[in-house]
Simulated assay, not measured.
Amino acid sequence: MKFKRGDKVVVIAGNNKGANGEILLVDRENGRVIVDGVNLRWKHRKSTDPQNPKGERVQEACSVHASNVMLLDPSTGKGTRKRPSSEG
């Protein structure tokens, strides 16, 4: 897989097509990545008596398949297949 944590990517397929973000986590075994602010889902948390007497809903970023994201070229702002030469 050509992605690593911290890379800027653009989503090219799915519900969040066209969204940009930074990779937070790479799951090489399953071929998936977690992108900041993309593929958000609601997680319902149960109440814990002393710290949190009420339950809550929080949004979490879920993984997307690595084939649905493309590296972002900083000079053009579009997706690219190759790693930009400025990053090394």
Score class of each variant (00 low, 15 high):
2 K>D: 10
3 F>P: 04
3 F>N: 06
6 G>I: 01
7 D>T: 00
8 K>F: 06
9 V>F: 01
10 V>D: 03
10 V>N: 04
11 V>A: 11
11 V>Q: 12
12 I>E: 09
13 A>T: 04
13 A>S: 11
14 G>I: 05
15 N>L: 09
18 G>A: 10
18 G>T: 13
19 A>P: 01
20 N>R: 15
20 N>A: 10
21 G>A: 13
21 G>R: 08
22 E>A: 03
22 E>D: 07
23 I>A: 09
24 L>I: 12
25 L>R: 15
26 V>R: 10
26 V>L: 10
27 D>T: 04
28 R>W: 01
29 E>R: 12
30 N>I: 04
31 G>F: 01
31 G>L: 10
32 R>D: 07
35 V>E: 03
36 D>L: 13
38 V>D: 00
39 N>T: 02
41 R>H: 11
43 K>T: 04
43 K>G: 03
44 H>I: 14
45 R>H: 11
45 R>T: 13
45 R>Y: 11
46 K>S: 10
47 S>C: 12
48 T>R: 14
49 D>Q: 10
49 D>F: 12
50 P>I: 06
50 P>E: 13
53 P>R: 07
54 K>H: 07
55 G>H: 11
55 G>A: 14
55 G>D: 07
59 Q>I: 05
60 E>V: 15
60 E>N: 08
63 S>D: 12
64 V>W: 04
66 A>P: 00
67 S>W: 06
67 S>K: 14
69 V>A: 02
69 V>Q: 06
70 M>N: 01
70 M>H: 04
73 D>A: 02
74 P>G: 10
74 P>T: 04
77 G>V: 03
77 G>N: 03
78 K>L: 15
78 K>T: 14
78 K>I: 07
79 G>E: 02
81 R>N: 14
81 R>W: 12
81 R>K: 14
82 K>A: 11
83 R>L: 14
84 P>W: 00
84 P>S: 02
85 S>T: 12
85 S>W: 06
87 E>P: 00
87 E>H: 09
88 G>Q: 09
